[in-house]
Design a protein around this nucleic acid. Structure first.
Length: 273
DNA sequence: GTCCAGGCATGCA
DNA sequence: TGCATGCATGGA
């Protein structure tokens, strides 16, 4: 990876396997918008970013080198060798063709709190509406970052709300889950940083104790927010995919089950019914 | 109008 | 432990 600072942007070359459309709009993160020029605008943490690809280079705009180094490198997982990971996953025949078709899906390192909230909202819901609800939530209770962009509201802020406030955002029956989750995280009863330091099994057990968090939401939070690449979420789409693996997951998935899952999820959404 | 979506808690056997 | 049921809402 080579990094070059210009007057307005940061130009990163030598990053393999990062397709912005596939990575930012594949149902793992819900706050990126595709602009007319093909670039993406979004917020993560308290940082706004515009990112695009040009001749294979990644162009980061509306950020600075310090935030890039301290935040975006980790967010986009730029130091991980995804090419080697994809080569390993190609040992599976279904994934081999899937990776050829959708090469460039990465797993983003999102913040635990945002990921957990987002996937509580995601249950029994479709991606378009998940985005709609999260957008309303940020606009109503996040910090104003300018130009119509808002940060994801903190647990502290959301702990001030009542169930009816979440219902007003369109959260439906998930409102009561979010209300309790916000208060428990804000009070320290649930310690997300501590959960991040546990083993996968221990962390999953902790998340499953949370009201409104079952196995699917737990695995999504673990994969997308807590850095566990072995987590393997199975939703309605992945249940259809699992018919292709009657004997369990192949050995080449070991340690990178979550990345395999994201390719299969994308394949299923585009190819099944 | 009906069906479905990155499911979960609850009650009951 | 496993299975049936109700649950909010917006888009297709």
């Amino acid at each position: 990876m080579k990094i070059k600072e210009t007057e307005k942007s940061i130009v990163v070359s030598g990053v393999e396997c990062l397709d912005l459309d596939l990575t930012l709009d594949c149902g793992q993160a819900f706050r990126w918008e595709r602009c007319e020029d093909g670039s993406y605008c979004g917020v993560a943490g308290s940082n706004f970013l515009n990112i695009r690809k040009e001749n294979g280079d990644l162009i980061f705009e509306n950020t600075d080198i310090e935030v890039f180094n301290n935040f975006w490198v980790n967010y986009f997982d730029l130091n991980r060798d995804y090419k080697a990971i994809c080569d390993k996953l190609r040992e599976d025949s279904l994934l081999s063709s899937t990776i050829d078709e959708y090469y460039g899906i990465r797993i983003l390192n999102q913040e635990p709190w945002e990921a957990l909230c987002s996937f509580v909202i995601s249950q029994q819901n479709n991606i378009k509406r998940i985005k709609l609800i999260i957008s309303r939530l940020c606009r109503a209770y996040g910090d104003d970052l300018g130009n119509g962009y808002y940060s994801f509201p903190s647990a502290q802020r959301l702990s001030e709300l009542e169930v009816a406030d979440f219902e007003a955002l369109g959260c439906g029956y998930r409102a009561k889950y979010l209300e309790k989750l916000s208060k428990d995280v804000a009070s320290g009863k649930i310690d997300l940083e501590k959960i991040k330091s546990l083993t996968l099994e221990e962390a999953r057990k902790e998340l499953l104790n949370i009201y409104g968090v079952g196995i699917k939401v737990a695995n999504c939070a673990l994969l997308f927010g807590f850095g566990f690449l072995s987590a393997f979420p199975v939703d309605v789409w992945m249940k259809r995919v699992m018919e292709h693996y009657p004997n369990g997951l192949p050995e080449c998935f070991d340690g990178i089950e979550g990345i395999a899952q994201q390719y299969l999820f994308h394949w299923a959404r585009n190819n099944i019914k």
